[in-house]
Design a binder for these strands. Structure first.
Lengths: 162, 162
DNA sequence: TATTGTTATACTCTATAACTATA
DNA sequence: TATAGTTATAGAGTATAACAATA
């Protein structure tokens, strides 16, 4: 088996990931600011779109952020009407957080805006390799984002969506 | 078929990169703290090992950090005797920063320590895919890390690039 | 009693400005 | 004058603790 190389102390992706994410985030900021968004807003919106409605705590686990900071993050997004909070009927302590139509639209615009940044930061990769990278990251993230599982929401699902 | 998809507004690696790097960094902290290191120390040590000695400004560009913060970062590493600062003979304004033997050793230990974290965060990927991811990240980073080129150090040159 | 969301607050990270020493 | 490094400091990001509402 080709396995052993993974244990090598020289093939660590962690620092590389950190390095690239940092560059991407810094450049993204200037591109996103005209849209009133910050990189972390984009991550949150993406998770909400892909994972569906969740409680704030589930969102906190998925984003690996402290729950107390989710409050401010959602306040930002809700004040821009990109996200909607409503009480869960099944457990009135919970807020069910969902992307609004405006939120989906803004997210789409933002993704378009940062395409240029990606082309720049990932410029050393051929288009094919960039696609491979995307798929690998996607798969890796799907493994860590399982936190959404925690709250499948209420059975009722009277989700009206403004 | 696979070509044009890159322009699609739905294949954005940025938020994924951010997401995964964040999880990796958070988990790494607890694993690295026994070694007296923080994730950003690891990134700096890695760059210094792979790129050779550089000036502090070149390091700042490579790490995409403000030069003023490099000072504190290097103070940390130098107080642990993991890096060495010495004046450049060619330009006495510059410090040439290099990894010490202790630094290389500590870096190696740290890489070993975070292997477990990587296995956890990238657990959704098969070993083969993890290796592919590493190679892609490495290639992408080599493209953005060119900053090191700026200062090839003293004895040689009048390297007044840019 | 335990959990969800909220507020207040302290700690860390990062960037801006001013200073020095060299060029 | 311009550049490399340093210091001081203000702003943003993040975590900890205490509280109200609900389970």
């Amino acid at each position: 088996m080709p396995a052993a190389s993974l244990d090598s102390s020289e093939h660590r992706s962690g620092p590389l990931l950190d390095h690239l994410a940092r560059r991407m985030r810094l450049r993204s900021e200037s591109v996103l600011s005209p849209l009133g968004l910050r990189p972390r807003h984009l991550v949150a919106l993406t998770v909400l779109r892909d994972g569906g409605g969740t409680s704030q705590q589930a969102l906190a686990r998925t984003l690996a952020m402290d729950g107390t900071n989710i409050v401010g993050l959602l306040n930002d997004l809700e004040s821009m009407q990109l996200v909607q909070r409503r009480r869960s009927a099944a457990d009135r302590r919970r807020h069910v957080v969902e992307l609004t139509d405006d939120g989906a639209k803004r997210l789409s615009e933002a993704e378009c805006a940062i395409a240029a940044v990606e082309n720049e930061v990932l410029g050393a990769l051929e288009p094919d390799d960039r696609e491979k990278l995307y798929l690998l990251l996607r798969q890796a993230a799907s493994g860590t984002t399982v936190a959404c599982e925690a709250v499948i929401l209420e059975d009722t699902s009277p989700v009206d969506g403004r």
